[in-house]
Simulated assay, not measured.
Amino acid sequence: MTERQPYRVVSRHPGFELRRYPAHLVAEVQVQASFTRAPLEAFRPLAAYIGGANRVRHPIGAGPATPDATGTTKIPMTAPVVQEEGERPGAYLVQFVMPAGSTAATLPEPVDARVRIREIPAQLAAAMRFSGRWTEKAFGQRATALGRSVTAAGLQPTGAIRYARFDPPWKPWFLRRNEVVLPVVE
């Protein structure tokens, strides 16, 4: 079973849950592509990284996984795969959440220069869960609704909206777990 990113539900509001996420690491790639193409273009380098396209930077047995004879490590897949808008128009960051307990010192170094390891600080965030297709329209409608619900609850957004996909592409669209997540001020 795929490990899911941990969080604690703080409260429930009309249209969303307020969650506390612990600090965690992500492997991310920035791509210049449409909303729909971005995860497809970022998937290959991210999958290669967790599949062993990396260099171990810690002694054997000191990290979340043991290196093989080539000095690389396979990292377990986790959920969700996260997408957020990048710094430039038309750019997106696509992120694989690293397994709980991973640290910058124990994760292997990516071989591909496009893959970056980054720490996301602990945060309070509003999240709206839904099932359905991975379209810009579906995520956009939920993002707009979440923003309105957050404002109506008297909370102030503090970061970029994140689009989270929890399931593989072969899972029927009506059974997929998707979320829009919006960091808010403490």
Rank of each mutant, 00 (worst) to 15 (best):
L175S: 09
E179I: 03
Q156W: 02
F43N: 08
A27C: 14
S11H: 01
M128W: 07
S11C: 00
H13N: 01
G101P: 13
A113Q: 13
G15Y: 09
T72M: 12
V26G: 05
A125L: 09
T72L: 09
E85G: 01
A153T: 08
Q32S: 13
V115K: 03
E119T: 14
R165S: 11
G159F: 04
R37K: 10
V81R: 02
R8E: 14
A138N: 13
P110I: 10
V31H: 14
T135R: 14
G71C: 03
V111R: 07
E136W: 04
Q83F: 00
R114N: 03
R177K: 15
T2N: 09
L155P: 02
P6W: 11
L93E: 11
R148Q: 12
M98C: 01
P14L: 03
R148I: 05
A105V: 04
G159E: 05
S102K: 02
E179V: 05
E3S: 03
P110T: 07
F16V: 06
W173A: 13
V82D: 07
S149I: 05
G61D: 08
L93V: 11
F139E: 00
G101D: 10
M1P: 06
V185A: 12
W134M: 11
E85T: 12
M77A: 15
L146P: 01
Y92W: 15
A127E: 13
Y7R: 00
R19E: 04
I117E: 08
V94R: 03
V115H: 04
T78V: 01
M77E: 09
N54W: 09
D167P: 13
Y49S: 00
E41C: 01
A164I: 08
R162A: 03
T66N: 09
T158L: 14
E85A: 04
P99V: 08
Q5H: 02
L25K: 12
H24P: 03
T70N: 13
A62L: 07
T106N: 02
G51V: 07
G52L: 04
L124F: 08
F16T: 05
L46A: 00
I161N: 07
P22Q: 10
G52V: 03
V181N: 00
A152W: 05
K171M: 15
M1G: 15
V26N: 11
P121E: 15
R37T: 10
Q123T: 06
R176M: 14
R19M: 09
V26L: 14
L175R: 15
D112E: 12
L40N: 13
F16K: 04
L146R: 02
R176T: 11
E85F: 04
E84H: 10
V185C: 01
T78R: 04
T70P: 07
E87I: 10
Y7E: 07
A143I: 09
G140R: 10
M77N: 00
R165T: 07
Q141Y: 08
P6M: 12
F96A: 01
Y163N: 02
R44A: 12
V94H: 03
F43C: 04
R57W: 03
Y49R: 01
P121Q: 13
A53C: 12
P172D: 15
R12E: 14
V115A: 05
G61N: 06
E84R: 14
R177P: 06
E17G: 03
Q30V: 12
G63F: 08
G147F: 13
L155E: 07
G140A: 11
V81F: 07
A100W: 08
